[in-house]
Each structure stands twice: as C-alpha cells, then as structure tokens.
Design a protein around this nucleic acid. Structure first.
Length: 187
DNA sequence: TAGGCCATCTGGTCCT
DNA sequence: AGGACCAGATGGCCTA
C-alpha cells in the first residue's frame, strides 16, 4: 500500500527516502558534557567495543569520586566507588550510549516511513511512535475496507476519519492530520 | 522564560 | 559475572 501511487502526490511528495541516506539525521545531535573528561574522545571504534580504551577516564582521578552531599539528608551513606567500579561504570556508559544510538537510528528509519508534510520539521520520538501507530491503523482499515486507497482517503477527507482500531488519535495534533499527510507522503 | 525534547549518566533488575 | 534493558535524574538546546 505504501508504494501505491494513489497515496502519493507526485508533485508534492517527498523525494525517495533513500535519497536521505547519509543524512538520516540532518539535525545535529546534542552534545552533552560528560562527567568523564575524555568522553569527547570516544570514537566509533570505542562504541564497537573493539578498541575500548579507558585511558584518562580510568585514571584514578579523585574528581570522579562521588562525594556525599553535606547539606542533603540521606538515609544511607553513599559509598565512594572503588577504582574498578569506575572502570566498569565507564564501560557500561559506553555500552548504554551505543544502545541509545541504535535506538535512535531505528527512530530515524521509522521517521522515513511515517507520513509527514514536506515542510514539516523533524518528528519527535513520541510523535513518531504515535503517528506510526495511527498510520498502521489507517493502512489496516484500507485493507479491511477493500476500497481503493485513493477513494478511501478522499472519503476520509470528506467525512473525517475514525479508525476502527484503538489507535491514539487525538493525543497529538500531528496524528489528527494523518489523512492530509498521506496525500503528501512518499515513502 | 517556561516547557518540550533530547543525550547522558546512573543504579537496579533481568537474562545468558 | 557481565551485558542488556529500563527508568529516574540532570542539564543543555530550542522555540513559542
């Protein structure tokens, strides 16, 4: 159905998603400061775990030690981590970052498959998920109806669309305009 | 300036 | 035991 020409507006549609290859994420990621001073030097090979070197960060620098906050009440005195803990923690942080990167790349991929207006700014993660749910529901409804996709969409434009599925529909304004998006969408 | 969104760190839990 | 997964906390950037 996605490739059905009737769900595509040739004159207004987005270019082929594959043309976005290489710029799947045209919006620069945020760079946050790490508590590990040399995290900025972590390379992709680090993330692959192949050449993970805990160089400077593994130094037994006292600045990494967790100091109990003097003016905050705490039930348990927080133990100051021993150096091996820091090394493991740093490695775990790198793995977590790598995991989040893979999740984000999956979100980028999903963004390519949900209908958006050409001028629309990048969908947030939550809107991507909600729109994907609504879009799947719409495609399912089209299949169930047996109607021609174009006539189904046009009918929805006239009469309004209410999915038979329990898709989240009004929680996001972006979902509400799904039908309009489909006219502009070229997966 | 407040709120939304995001990356990162972190500790806990589950799984292999 | 170590890695994957998860959710909470935190702080930065952006926009209305």
């Amino acid at each position: 159905i996605q490739s059905h020409p009737l769900l595509v507006s040739p004159e207004n549609g987005l270019s082929d998603c594959s043309s976005l290859t290489g710029q799947l994420s045209p919006w620069p990621s945020f760079t946050c400061q790490s508590m590990f001073p040399d995290d900025a030097q972590i390379s992709l090979t680090d993330l692959d775990g192949q050449t993970l070197q805990l160089e400077g960060s593994a130094e037994l620098d006292s600045s990494f030690l967790v100091q109990p906050e003097a003016n905050k009440p705490h039930k348990h005195h927080r133990l100051i981590p021993a150096p091996p803990y820091k090394v493991q923690r740093h490695a775990a942080n790198i793995r977590e970052r790598k995991r989040m990167l893979s999740i984000n790349s999956a979100f980028d991929e999903l963004r390519c498959h949900v209908p958006t207006f050409p001028y629309e700014k990048r969908l947030s993660k939550i809107d991507t998920l909600r729109l994907a749910i609504a879009y799947i529901a719409l495609l399912s409804d089209i299949l169930i109806s047996g109607c021609h996709p174009k006539s189904y969409v046009e009918q929805c434009m006239k009469n309004g669309y209410k999915s038979h599925k329990n898709a989240i529909w009004n929680t996001s304004g972006k979902c509400a305009a799904l039908i309009s998006r489909c006219l502009y969408f070229r997966p």
